[in-house]
Computed example of a mutant assay.
Amino acid sequence: MTALPAAKTRPLNAPPLLAAQGLAFSRNDEPVFGPLDFHIDAGEALLVQGDNGAGKTTLLRVLAGLLRADAGQVQIDGRPAGHKERSQFVAYLSHLPALKADLDTLENLNFLCGLHGRRTRQMPGNALAIVGLAGYEDTLVRQLSAGQKRRLALARIWLSPAPLWLLDEPYANLDLEGINLVNRMISAHLRSGGAALVTTHGAYAAPPVQTRLLSLGAAA
């Protein structure tokens, strides 16, 4: 099993990586979530739980800057969350793998590293080994199974230099070994000063780390 290297550490007096105050979102004049107040410090995970329709994915899309909140504010590293702050601090794993189907796995990671940068001393080939895809360097993404695509998306997250991970159902399409992989990645990221916001439909899978809970009610 490939060891997970440490990420870059943060100063002890750093502000929360993410803080939200009065955050709310509505769709077609119907409230989806909020108002919410929460923060995520370096070295911890925030587990967001709720039934289908409770707004978990919508919350992550708002935090990632893909949707605009109706009310409230978000700060990243103590500053208002603008495009620059999100590009520097946030890595987002969505339900969709965000991969190019007609490129191979290594080409995908090289392309994404060119867009977003990568961790110091981390290389795409090593990331493939970490997620269990060694030997698949020349395999086209469209030839991968759903679980393998999920692992490749996790390799993209691991390569990102961003300290804040927004992980939407990261255990989806993974077997027990894959679930353990996600837990190892999150644990290593937190130990080295990163943070993670993780959505899950239930308590069957959660990272074994310092975790706080944010529960979202079902949509009306």
Rank of each mutant, 00 (worst) to 15 (best):
145 S>L: 05
117 G>M: 04
141 V>T: 07
162 A>H: 03
137 E>S: 11
143 Q>I: 00
126 N>E: 15
135 G>M: 10
189 H>P: 07
169 E>N: 06
115 L>I: 15
137 E>H: 12
123 M>T: 15
174 L>H: 06
118 R>C: 09
139 T>W: 00
118 R>K: 15
171 Y>V: 04
105 T>E: 05
184 R>C: 03
154 L>A: 09
195 A>D: 02
174 L>Q: 07
153 A>E: 00
151 R>W: 07
191 R>H: 14
107 E>K: 14
177 E>V: 11
188 A>I: 07
139 T>Q: 00
122 Q>F: 07
125 G>Q: 14
133 L>P: 09
154 L>C: 07
181 L>W: 04
177 E>T: 13
184 R>E: 09
195 A>F: 03
133 L>V: 08
181 L>A: 07
158 W>G: 00
126 N>W: 05
182 V>Q: 03
152 L>P: 02
105 T>C: 15
137 E>V: 09
186 I>S: 13
123 M>V: 14
172 A>R: 10
111 F>M: 10
190 L>Y: 05
129 A>Q: 06
176 L>Q: 15
148 Q>E: 12
175 D>M: 09
133 L>G: 08
185 M>Q: 14
165 W>Y: 04
109 L>K: 10
193 G>F: 01
182 V>F: 05
192 S>D: 00
123 M>W: 13
146 A>N: 03
112 L>T: 01
134 A>T: 07
130 I>D: 07
121 R>N: 12
110 N>Q: 14
131 V>M: 11
111 F>I: 03
113 C>S: 09
137 E>G: 10
146 A>R: 10
111 F>D: 10
115 L>R: 13
194 G>C: 03
167 L>I: 09
140 L>I: 08
181 L>T: 06
151 R>E: 05
108 N>D: 05
112 L>P: 01
194 G>R: 02
162 A>Y: 01
144 L>D: 00
140 L>T: 12
179 I>Y: 05
179 I>A: 13
190 L>A: 08
161 P>Q: 07
122 Q>H: 14
107 E>D: 15
184 R>I: 01
184 R>W: 01
193 G>Y: 02
138 D>P: 05
156 R>I: 02
173 N>F: 05
107 E>A: 15
151 R>K: 13
147 G>F: 04
123 M>Q: 15
164 L>E: 00
195 A>T: 04
120 T>F: 13
179 I>V: 15
114 G>A: 13
137 E>T: 10
160 S>W: 00
180 N>P: 01
